[in-house]
Amino acid sequence: MEPIAVISIFVLAVFVGFEVVSKVSSTLHTPLMSGANAIHGVILVGAIIVADHSSTNLELGLAVAAIVLATINMVGGFVVTDRMLEMFKGKK
């Protein structure tokens, strides 16, 4: 990828990230942290790509470990966030 494209994506994403959570009540801090946490579980995609690339047993072993950890992060994160938010439902 062109470095300038990478830098552009990065900078724009920083501003979007700042903007979307700039005003959030403390009530939602816990679910928001948990939800953001689940999103970075998408490193699973990277773990699958490197597992496909791996050519030695060491590489494959580490990649498999990464897939296990990333899956826990992603799936567990979304499930637990949903459980928290379920309880806010029906208020007000």
Binding site: V6, A13, V24, L32, M33, I39
Partner: peptide, 14 residues
């Protein structure tokens, strides 16, 4: 890149 940066930026604000 997008997902990671989003979490990095929003996480910092949070």
């Amino acid at each position: 890149i997008i997902a990671g940066t989003l979490v990095g930026a929003s996480g910092t604000i949070l």
